[in-house]
Design a protein around this nucleic acid. Structure first.
Length: 270
DNA sequence: AAATCTCCCTGTAGGC
DNA sequence: TGCCTACAGGGAGATT
């Protein structure tokens, strides 16, 4: 599932192909994804060129002079750059044809992704205005996270997956960061000490950075060929229940927390 | 304000 | 082998 590193890899991957290029047409093959695709996308884009591509949390923003197109990949969404004439695949829902004869195509099996239009005041969009800080910026720091965690009774894994707290962290990187920080995912957020918070902030930054450097965990874009980022092989706990901890060889535990799976080492994470 | 619940969707896994 | 059901999961929006 695409989280911050995967979305960043997609941004880096598609930018050279579409940045500065003029849109010829926009088509959809679905009545809706998670929501109806905003009608402005079909009327505003043709004739305009992409000024830049930004990532905010797990959202991608394609900026145009009259506003921005907002893309979320949900659980199973991915973007591909394909040449004109490429056959439509199953679950290809949406595409933009560019003047240089390439197509940006969105595929999403589960349809949890979305495509919307954002006016020029990007900040005021309902999906963006309450997003917490970007984890790889200075505004996401120990003081911030410690203060934010006071009076929060939820588990720390739920807390760091809350996009109002910090943007872009999903289940994979939440679990991996907690392992690196040696914090048990089920610990209530308001019981985090300052020392815990220092470790956690550092772990979140390091795990996201490390993943981006090797191309994310699972990613598929560009020319239609399947690509796997190399972070998949570096996962220490995620989807490794029953397998030995990479540090102490104790079997990795799996639990359900708030209807999601968490993975941890009961020896390393206390 | 914060926590919890519901729902969207389809491939996959497990039971028989 | 094949049908049927349960289930997973991101996150907005509703409800508690």
């Amino acid at each position: 599932m695409p989280e911050l590193p995967e979305v960043e890899i997609v941004r880096l991957g598609i930018s050279p192909y579409i940045s500065g290029n003029a849109v010829v047409s926009v088509t959809t093959h679905s009545t809706k994804l998670r929501w109806l695709i905003s009608p402005e996308v079909f009327t505003e884009l043709p004739g305009q060129s992409i000024l830049s591509i930004e990532r905010r949390g797990k959202y991608l923003l394609l900026h145009f002079s009259t506003g921005s197109m907002l893309i979320h990949l949900g659980m199973t969404g991915y973007l591909r750059i394909v040449p004109v004439g490429t056959d439509l695949g199953k679950h290809d829902h949406f595409e933009i044809l560019f003047k240089n004869s390439i197509i940006l195509r969105l595929n999403d099996v589960r349809k949890f992704g979305s495509v919307s239009w954002v006016g020029l005041n990007t900040q005021s969009h309902k999906h963006l205005q309450e997003l917490g800080p970007e984890p790889l910026t200075e505004s996401f720091n120990c003081t911030y996270l410690y203060n934010k965690s006071r009076s929060r009774k939820v588990t720390v894994v739920q807390f760091i997956m809350d996009h109002k707290v910090v943007a872009g962290i999903g289940n994979i990187y939440a679990n991996e960061a907690l392992f690196r920080a040696k914090i048990r995912p089920t610990m209530p957020a308001d019981r985090l000490s300052i020392a815990h918070t220092v470790s956690l902030v550092a772990a979140i930054k390091s795990v996201l950075t490390a993943s981006i450097l090797v191309g994310g965990t699972m990613i598929d874009f560009r020319d239609g060929t399947e690509k796997y980022g190399h972070f998949l092989e570096k996962l220490a706990v995620y989807h490794r229940s029953g397998q030995p901890c990479v540090v102490c060889t104790t079997q990795i535990q799996q639990k359900r927390v708030a209807r999601r799976s968490v993975f941890y080492c009961k020896e390393c994470q206390r």
